[in-house]
Computed example of a mutant assay.
Amino acid sequence: MALKRPTGEALAQEISARVGYIFKDLRLLETALTHSSAVKATTNNERLEFLGDRVLGLIVADMLLQLFPEAREGEIAPRFNALVDARTCSNIGLQLELDQFMRADAALKSRTRKAGGNYLADAVEALVAAIYLDGGIEAARAFVHRNWEPLARLAVEKPANPKGELQEWVARSSDARPVYAIQKREGPDHEPVFTVSLQVNGFAPAHGSGSSRRAAEEAAASEFLVREGVWTVEKGAA
């Protein structure tokens, strides 16, 4: 791909090859791939992301009911939560190589390129909305099924709750409680990175980083649980 980001018909062709949908209104596509941090942008994908989150949720919920007709709500809910999770959307965005076509702050894209980042998850949801507005619910459904259905049968475990499990584990043997403290906050306001320390009496401190205080605390709790052998490395990385 050329170093210069394609626009117009060239952008539409690149995206069509990846998502399997041809846009009629190219403005919708441009907006879906424009982050609020983009320099000189007159519009961004925040409103589309808001709509896409709801469209994605509806289609994924309907898809799961069809795939698992005998499953109870308690079995379907964890699959649903995992499929619409920001990390899942971000990974799909990376697989579609949307990071190559995003209009966003260069530092933001560079810092989150390997992990995808929330900006890419938002773009995927905005793209769902753009397809829905441009081609209707069936076009959006086809896109979602193509990219989310292969993951549906894999998302079988309840999403990890590291802070809750740590609290329960500590309570079994003592009256101590985990204490979290913010060590530093870096990055711009639209994409901050928090670093948190975790202290439990009688144990070495653990640390974690994330795009929010909660995410950083969960990362620190995961590190602690893996280090103390409560969790496996695989679960801690989930």
Rank of each mutant, 00 (worst) to 15 (best):
A2T: 12
A2L: 14
L3M: 14
L3Q: 14
T7Q: 13
G8V: 12
G8S: 11
A10V: 13
A10F: 10
A10G: 08
L11S: 09
L11V: 08
Q13T: 13
E14M: 11
E14K: 14
I15F: 11
I15W: 11
S16E: 15
A17D: 14
G20Y: 06
G20F: 07
Y21S: 08
F23W: 11
L26E: 14
R27V: 10
R27P: 00
K40W: 08
K40P: 01
E46D: 12
L48P: 03
L51I: 09
G52Y: 08
I59P: 01
D62W: 03
D62H: 06
Q66W: 08
P78M: 04
P78I: 04
P78D: 03
R79C: 04
R79T: 09
N81Y: 12
L83D: 08
L83N: 07
V84S: 05
A86F: 06
A86Y: 04
R87N: 12
S90G: 11
N91K: 12
I92H: 06
G93I: 04
Q95D: 13
L96D: 07
E97F: 07
E97V: 06
A104N: 05
L108C: 08
K109P: 00
K109N: 05
T112I: 00
R113H: 05
K114A: 11
A115S: 14
G116M: 03
G117N: 02
Y119K: 00
L120P: 00
A121R: 04
A123G: 04
V124F: 03
V128H: 03
A129P: 00
A130M: 02
I131W: 07
Y132N: 08
E138I: 00
A139K: 09
A139R: 07
A140I: 06
R141G: 02
H145R: 13
N147A: 01
E149N: 01
P150F: 01
A152H: 02
A152P: 05
L154C: 01
A155D: 03
A155Q: 06
V156D: 01
E157L: 09
N161Y: 06
G164I: 05
E168N: 10
E168Y: 00
E168C: 00
D175Q: 14
P178N: 05
Y180N: 05
Q183E: 15
G187W: 04
P188E: 03
D189L: 13
D189K: 14
P192T: 01
F194I: 05
V196C: 06
S197W: 03
V200Y: 04
N201D: 15
N201R: 15
G202R: 08
F203S: 10
P205H: 08
H207V: 15
G210R: 05
S211D: 12
S211W: 06
S212R: 02
R213P: 06
R214C: 02
R214G: 02
R214D: 04
A220F: 01
A221F: 04
A221V: 05
E223S: 13
E223L: 04
F224H: 14
L225K: 10
V226S: 09
E228N: 12
G229H: 11
G229V: 11
G229L: 12
W231L: 08
V233Y: 12
K235M: 13
G236S: 09
A237E: 12
A238G: 03
